[in-house]
Amino acid sequence: TAASAEAVKPTQVVFEDGAISASLSGMPGDAANGAALMNKGSGNCIACHSVSALSDLPFHGEVGPPLDGAGDRWSEADLRGIVADAKMMFDGTVMPSFYKTSGFTRLGDAYTGKAHGEDEVQPLLTAQEIEDVVAFLVTLKDE
C-alpha cells in the first residue's frame, strides 16, 4: 500500500530514454507543494525557467526554456526523469540533477564553500519532493 511504500534510492533509479515510469516515493505528488518548491529551497526552478502560472512571484530566469505547456509536451514519466536527472534526457544540459548523489567534482557542504564532510550525500530534492514538482508540472497545459 501507499503508506508502507519505500522510496527508490538515487543510486537505484532506472531511466528509460531519460524517463522514469513509476513514482520515486511510491506515493502520488502534491502539486501545491510542488509549486512552492519551484520557487525556493533546493528546487528554485524559476531561477532558470519562467512559469506563467507562478507569475505572482518575482524574477523568473531565462537560462532554461519557459515551462508553460510542459504538461502537454511531456508525459509524467518524462517529467519525472527530467527533474530527477535532466542529463539523462538532454545530454550535457546545464540543468542540475535533483535526484543524484554521486559523481560530483569538489562537492561542497551546501552553500558554505567548504568541502562536503563524511555524511551521506543528500539529493537536492527528496523522492517525495520530486513527485510534488512533477505533479505541479503536469498541470502546466497550454490555454
Binding site: 567534482t105 562537492l107 561542497g108 557542504d109 558554505t112 564553500g113 567548504k114
Partner: peptide, 8 residues
C-alpha cells in the same frame, strides 16, 4: 564557485 554548492 560557492554558488554551485562546491568546495571553493
Amino acid at each position: 564557485i560557492r554558488d554551485t554548492r562546491a568546495e571553493t
